[in-house]
Simulated assay, not measured.
Amino acid sequence: MKVLVDLRPLQSPDFAERGIGTYARNMLRVLNSRFEGSMDGLSADNFPRPDSPLPESKARFYRPKFRKLVPFNWLFDRIVISAKLCWSDYDLLHILEPFRHALTLPRRSRTRVVCTVYDLIPIIFPEHYFPGGIRGRVWSMGERFNSRLIPRIDRIIAISENTKRDLVERLGVEESRISVVYQSVDGEVLKPDGDPERDRAVLDGLNIPEKFILYVGDVDWRKDIASLARALARLKSPGDKDVPLVMAGGTIAERESHAARGAWEAINNAGVAGRVITPGFVPQDELASLYRSAACLVFPSVYEGFGLPPLEAMACGCPVVTTDASSLPEVVGDAGILFHPGDDAACAEAIMKILDDGETASEMRDAGLKRAERFSDENFAGGVIAAYHAAKKRAV
């Protein structure tokens, strides 16, 4: 079987260092030694080459930057890539960013299409994603049009049962055409038994004290930083009231974006700005040191397609406090403490339980490590390969 993987998300600054980019790199990592067919990468010539183990592909193409004329970019993609695939010998095209690249679907081609869908958050919460005016209407129309193409894809990989349920209920996709495949993390990096001296050196380099609470991720509206800040303010006991919150991620540290300004406003309103440390973007090897050293990870998200930081934390032996919303119970199970979104009192109570009770923290570390074993490289690779075969079989 010959597969072409769309690597354009790894060329995009919007995705390369975020969840989709991490998913793409992890998927290629686990397939690299397990997939018995051949695999190439599709990329655009006028963007930096993607950081990928895949070889150069004959399917590279030039994509002009029409900038504000986004619909013309979509049209160009469809014409050029579909034409290339019509003359290629690829059995499968794997799209890794459906809502931008669904128009890449080949027409009159033997190439079947597999698509990973992470979530339908822009469709479920459109009020948070589309600006006003003509540009907003164009984006909204494009998103809706792309979403209508998704049910026509030969095989869909959903990263959680929650995403599968949304695909069925929101877009009318047949359940039989969806494969739920849980991703894994890089166990060579994200592991509980790191070098204590190196971990301490990482903390010192980022000016992080020995005892801290950790948050990892973006700071847009659904991450509910306001609840996190209020929970931090509720830590009143002598041993807890000065424990800082480390927020790892580039957006909160830059302070310039709309999301960052909203997060800092919430932090200031809660009166905890002096306890928040923002080291900025942290590469994965250093992030592992933060996970291993943190008292706990707090992840108060309102909605996720999967929820990678809780899995990364559990793989490193870090206790997890998160919400019972969307896919997060699938990931954490009974290994973490769950609370309802927006309930900062329950969140604070969970944090204090971990900070003040060493036995609870130890039990949660052990439970998290055991839970993380379910999300193995073998299961991730096996699920993706099975989806490829299902798509190929459908083409017969």
Rank of each mutant, 00 (worst) to 15 (best):
residue 151 P to D: 02
residue 150 I to E: 01
residue 155 R to G: 06
residue 146 N to D: 14
residue 159 I to A: 01
residue 152 R to W: 07
residue 146 N to V: 05
residue 147 S to N: 01
residue 149 L to N: 04
residue 152 R to Q: 11
residue 145 F to M: 14
residue 161 E to W: 02
residue 154 D to N: 12
residue 160 S to Q: 04
residue 167 L to Y: 12
residue 140 S to D: 07
residue 155 R to T: 09
residue 167 L to I: 08
residue 162 N to D: 09
residue 163 T to Q: 08
residue 169 E to Y: 11
residue 140 S to G: 02
residue 167 L to W: 09
residue 157 I to F: 03
residue 164 K to F: 00
residue 166 D to W: 08
residue 159 I to R: 08
residue 142 G to F: 04
residue 156 I to M: 06
residue 157 I to P: 04
residue 154 D to E: 10
residue 168 V to P: 04
residue 169 E to T: 14
residue 140 S to Y: 06
residue 163 T to H: 09
residue 139 W to N: 11
residue 164 K to A: 13
residue 163 T to L: 12
residue 153 I to P: 03
residue 144 R to E: 09
residue 150 I to C: 00
residue 166 D to R: 08
residue 143 E to C: 13
residue 155 R to P: 01
residue 160 S to Y: 04
residue 161 E to L: 08
residue 143 E to M: 15
residue 166 D to H: 15
residue 156 I to E: 06
residue 144 R to S: 14
residue 165 R to G: 06
residue 148 R to Q: 09
residue 154 D to L: 02
residue 166 D to V: 06
residue 147 S to V: 03
residue 141 M to Y: 12
residue 147 S to E: 00
residue 150 I to H: 02
residue 158 A to P: 00
residue 150 I to D: 02
residue 159 I to D: 00
residue 166 D to L: 07
residue 167 L to V: 10
residue 165 R to K: 14
residue 140 S to N: 14
residue 139 W to Y: 11
residue 156 I to P: 00
residue 146 N to R: 14
residue 140 S to I: 01
residue 139 W to R: 14
residue 168 V to L: 01
residue 167 L to F: 08
residue 150 I to P: 07
